[in-house]
């Protein structure tokens, strides 16, 4: 991974991501007590989950530092996942 970064720098970035993940977890639980509307609450929950997933994939799973072509392994199946979820959600409306 990022060989140009020092041990302390990488350690710091991991702890920053960890704190962000914990804050987002607290946030996603906190927003369930507020009712924006049935659909809006689901959208908020999904958006927070996507933000958390991005942090994990980008920093913990080193996608930020690895060759960018490796990201196809995420984007291609993710495209079909989003297609499936979107289609089934729209069919259910």
């Amino acid at each position: 991974m990022a060989s140009g970064m020092s041990f302390e720098q990488i350690q710091k970035s991991y702890f920053t991501v960890f704190i962000a993940l914990m804050v987002l977890t607290a946030l996603t639980v906190a927003v369930t007590t507020i009712h924006f509307g049935d659909v809006a609450n689901i959208v908020v929950g999904v958006l927070i989950a996507i933000a958390k997933a991005g942090l994990v994939a980008y920093i913990f799973m080193h996608l930020k530092y690895d060759h960018s072509r490796l990201r196809y392994f995420v984007t291609v199946p993710l495209f079909f996942f989003v297609l499936l979820v979107a289609t089934l959600t729209l069919l259910g409306l």
């Binding site: 690895d66 060759h67 392994f73 291609v76 199946p77 079909f80 996942f81 499936l84 979820v85 959600t89």
Partner: peptide, 29 residues
């Protein structure tokens, strides 16, 4: 690419894992 075979293999597996769990989320919806 700077990517070793073990890492490439794991990412191929994880791509299949995304599809595996996609089925569950689809069924859930």
């Amino acid at each position: 690419t700077g990517i070793y075979h073990g890492k490439l293999g794991m990412w191929v597996f994880l791509a299949s894992e995304i599809m595996f769990f996609s089925g569950f989320f689809g069924a859930f919806i």
